[in-house]
């Protein structure tokens, strides 16, 4: 038996050889992809590939990445011709960023969704962003700013959740629903966000609205907020995730309770604490009204919260929460506690 076994094993291996194996250096690892408009409805796709010998050498001479721009109908076919130019096969498995030009986002990103989902080497957690101006320029300009590891650079730039004015979006978030919110960057870096509704760019959110979005969506958050023209600065952090309750009796009624911790950092003018919470509350309600009535976009994905209110899918679809959301009533409550040792839970 063992002889037969050995015979089979060795036959198969000798006959088939090392099928499918690829040495590391046969591949070009793409770190970021930029997609611009081209002529005649074509795309200009920029591939940022790593040059490992420059990245790991200590002297640091030579660019760590090379950018190649190819004109093509589609991202994957572009990767083939880019691979031809570089004499290597393009590999997406370490790609960190896919950046769309603003104009492309306005035209519609729907056609990219399936490509990004279906190509195995794209990770579901690859970051997606929108860039003002040409992406190729953006990459060429920022390549000088790269430290040792360009992949890390993009991760820090587009993936960080902590800072006030940035959100991050991955392929999974982007292709999962009809609405998504992408970071918007220009030459200086990320400073605002865009809302994508039904695959098209619907609006650009200014900085302060992004902060409100982050508060409402329950993302990890801590930031400084200014009131009354810099007279008072409040350090805000999230105590726990916001509670969102929906009432589906007649019209959709949404009640959001935010739990916030805060600390007054600078206070030139004496203001009552209620003032801050009122302000935040007003901003939140404003944001919700703006997105639902004006943009008709359920950016916080509130409609899915109505699902437990129904027994079957057909009931849920009959109720049509997406339509109902556009006429929904909003109520925001804020539970604020001061961030102070000893008196932490003192309610105001």
């Amino acid at each position: 038996m063992k002889k037969l076994l050995c015979a089979i094993v060795f036959c198969i291996f000798v006959l088939c050889g090392c099928s499918g194996a690829k040495e590391l250096e046969e591949l070009a690892y793409v770190i970021a992809i930029g997609i611009d408009e081209g002529e005649n409805d074509k795309l200009n796709v920029t591939f940022v590939t790593a040059i490992p010998s420059n990245i790991s050498s200590e002297s640091g001479n030579g660019k760590p990445v090379s950018c190649i721009t190819v004109e093509s109908e589609n991202v994957l076919s572009a990767s083939v011709s880019a691979g031809g130019k570089m004499n290597r096969n393009i590999d997406f498995s370490h790609c960190r960023l896919i950046a769309f030009n603003e104009n492309i986002a306005i035209k519609g990103l729907g056609k990219f969704k399936k490509t990004l989902l279906n190509e195995k080497s794209f990770r579901p957690d690859t970051l997606i962003s929108v860039i003002k101006g040409k992406t190729s320029d953006f990459f060429n300009n920022s390549s000088s700013a790269f430290e040792t590891n360009p992949a890390k650079y993009f991760e820090l730039m587009f993936g960080s959740q902590g800072s006030k004015n940035a959100v991050s979006c991955t392929i999974k978030d982007f292709s999962g629903g009809n609405q998504s919110i992408l970071p918007l960057a220009d030459k200086e870096g990320v400073n605002s966000c865009v809302i994508i509704n039904n695959d098209r760019l619907a609006a650009v959110l200014p900085e302060n609205k992004v902060a409100i979005y982050k508060l409402l969506s329950g993302k990890k958050f801590q930031s400084y907020m200014d009131f009354e023209n810099d007279e008072a600065v409040l350090f805000i952090s999230r105590e726990k995730a916001p509670e969102i309750k929906v009432d589906t009796k007649n019209n959709l009624k949404v009640t959001v309770t935010l739990y916030l911790n805060g600390e007054l950092i600078a206070e030139n003018k004496k203001l009552s604490h209620n003032k801050y919470t009122e302000n935040i509350k007003a901003q939140c309600e404003n944001f919700l009204e703006y997105t639902s009535k004006e943009l008709k976009c359920d950016i916080l994905n509130i409609t899915r919260l109505t699902r437990p209110h129904f027994f079957t899918v057909s009931d849920y679809e009959k109720y049509n929460p997406t339509k109902k959301y556009e006429r929904a009533e909003f109520d925001v409550k804020i539970v604020y506690s001061d961030l102070k040792t000893g008196e932490r839970n003192l309610k105001l």
């Binding site: 590391l24 250096e25 690892y29 490992p52 990245i55 790991s56 050498s57 590891n149 992949a151 890390k152």
Partner: peptide, 9 residues
């Protein structure tokens, strides 16, 4: 990724 680049280099 960083280890990959180190190995490849």
């Amino acid at each position: 990724t960083s280890l990959l680049f180190a190995i490849e280099a």
